[in-house]
């Protein structure tokens, strides 16, 4: 079930081969849905689901897809899964689905999906492909949650909607940093995470 190689497939995307920090895929949604923690978690879970299953499906039919039309086939599989997730969210978590609005739809063009389908699922058996999908989805969600944690904490003083910074701080003149809610700060937060990660893993650093 979990041979050594499968373990690497599952856990490497969490740090050394992180889809956001190292492969630079799926940036758009990382930045857009991280104002609050809750939508970030929902988005992460949706991406994990879509990725795991689209990887399995493409891997199952990988020998029958003609290479010339594979992009359209991949897009159709992903789009069908995204529609399922979208309808599920509208049915069970309407408020969050409103907050995420177009970004659930944009999972289709999330480059992590296309990237992993092209790079992994087209050449591997269904079970490793499933693990690869889950692993990369988790790596993506991890970054989403870290960024959303700092943005919600510093920007609104709350976590998951509960007030974390006590009222007396505000009484003594503490102010929420409105900058953190604005989109550009998401980019700078991700840059800081990249900085920390590359300072610890010297082999990831780029030569000037």
């Amino acid at each position: 079930m979990l041979s050594k190689r499968n373990k690497e497939v599952l856990f490497n995307p969490l740090s050394k081969d992180n889809p956001v920090l190292v492969q630079i895929l799926g940036i758009c949604s990382t930045l857009a849905v991280t104002v609050k923690l809750e939508p970030a978690i929902v988005m992460g879970l949706s991406v994990i689901t879509v990725m795991a299953f689209s990887n399995v499906i493409i891997s199952l039919i990988r020998k029958t897809i003609p290479t010339t039309i594979r992009i359209i086939v991949q897009l159709v599989v992903v789009a069908a899964l995204v529609i399922v997730v979208q309808q599920f969210l509208v049915a069970y978590d309407y408020d969050v689905s409103l907050q995420l609005n177009v970004f659930i739809g944009l999972i289709i063009t999330n480059c992590i999906l296309m990237g992993r389908l092209e790079a992994f699922a087209l050449n591997n058996k269904p079970w490793p492909s499933f693990l690869d999908g889950v692993g990369n989805g988790l790596g993506y969600m991890l970054i989403l949650v870290i960024v959303a944690f700092f943005r919600e904490l510093l920007g609104s003083g709350t976590l998951l909607g509960y007030q974390v910074i006590p009222q007396w701080c505000y009484d003594h003149g503490y102010m929420d940093n409105g900058m953190m809610i604005l989109p550009p700060m998401a980019l700078i937060t991700v840059a800081c995470i990249i900085w920390v990660q590359r300072a610890r893993n010297k082999d990831l650093q780029e030569q000037a």
Partner: peptide, 24 residues
């Protein structure tokens, strides 16, 4: 001369962020 861990992607993110602030 950019700090080594920020070279490439990192600094590009920061530039984009600053451009975003300007566009605001």
């Amino acid at each position: 001369n950019i700090p080594a861990p920020l070279r490439g992607v990192g600094i590009t993110f920061i530039i984009t962020g600053l451009m975003g602030i300007a566009f605001m």
